[in-house]
Structures are given as structure tokens and as C-alpha cells.
């Protein structure tokens, strides 16, 4: 890696810790061709229930931030609203953090593949969103 900014960081935010962990494992396995972009996943509340912890989100975003932007992918309910609220009103997330509009599982894989290949934040967001286009029937 040169001295410039690193890779785009990916944060997966689920309503459930188990979902976040499983999707992250899947994405890492499918995307791994050597040199994965930083990926952090979180889900559920701090006490282990379903829901979303804004502190876990901001901590994860800081961990994966290499200066090239952070793509946040979310699943449903409070996961969506918490990230949107942090982006709209707060200053807790790093500069260059962006909510990516994408299906959670497919988007996570596409985002991690693209970020690991060195794509910038626009490319990562576009790849993740494109996953909406893969029709199943």
C-alpha cells in the first residue's frame, strides 16, 4: 500500500448480532483473494437483545476508517434509523461515512469485493446498490 489513504472501510449493521456475524463471515469468505478491506460487523443492543447500539456503530466505523471513506450497510428497523439519525444530526461518525442503499447480504459481498480490490467509496456504493438488480425470478 502506498502512503495515500487506505481502502474503503465497510460496516455491517444488523438488528441482530447473529445476522451481522454470519453475513460478515460469508462476505469475508467470498471476497477473500488476499488483502481484504477492513470490515466490521455489529448487531443487537449492548445487552445482547435485538436492536441497535449507536455506540457500537460509531466504534466500528472508527475501527475500519483508513481515510478513504466508510460504507455502512444496514438491514432493517432500528439499524436503518440509527445510522440515518447519526448521519443527519450527529458528528459521531468519521468524515466520509456513507449509508449505502443495498440489500444486506448481497450488498455486503459486493461492497467487500469492491473495496478489497481498491475501489473508492463511490465504486463500493455503486457495486452494493447494483445488487438490487440481480433478480431471482
Amino acid at each position: 500500500m502506498s502512503g495515500g489513504p487506505g481502502k474503503v472501510g465497510i460496516v455491517l449493521v444488523s438488528h441482530s448480532a447473529a445476522v451481522a456475524g454470519a453475513v460478515a463471515d460469508l462476505a469475508r469468505e467470498l471476497a477473500d483473494e488476499g488483502g481484504l478491506a477492513p470490515l466490521a460487523e455489529l448487531g443487537g443492543t449492548r445487552d445482547g437483545g435485538l436492536g441497535t447500539s449507536s455506540e457500537l456503530i460509531t466504534a466500528a466505523a472508527r475501527v475500519v476508517d483508513e481515510g478513504a471513506g466508510v460504507a455502512l450497510l444496514v438491514d432493517l428497523g432500528s439499524a436503518v434509523l440509527t445510522v440515518k439519525a447519526l448521519l443527519a444530526e450527529g458528528d459521531e461518525l468519521p468524515a466520509g461515512a456513507r449509508l449505502v442503499d443495498a440489500p444486506f447480504v448481497e450488498g455486503a459481498v459486493a461492497a467487500l469485493v469492491t473495496a478489497s480490490a481498491g475501489g473508492d467509496l463511490d465504486a463500493v456504493a455503486a457495486a452494493a446498490s447494483e445488487a438490487y438488480g440481480y433478480r431471482k425470478v
Binding site: G49, G51, T52, S54, S78, T82, A88, E89, G90
Partner: peptide
Amino acid sequence: RVLISTVGGASGPLYGTLLR
């Protein structure tokens, strides 16, 4: 800010945004 970080459900970001 406290509501967003402590509620855990959708009402946290919603009420948090209202007050913020």
C-alpha cells in the same frame, strides 16, 4: 444524543432526532 445511544430500538433515533 443520549436517547440515540441508549434506547436500542427505532424510538431512540426517532425521539433523538426530534430533540436534537
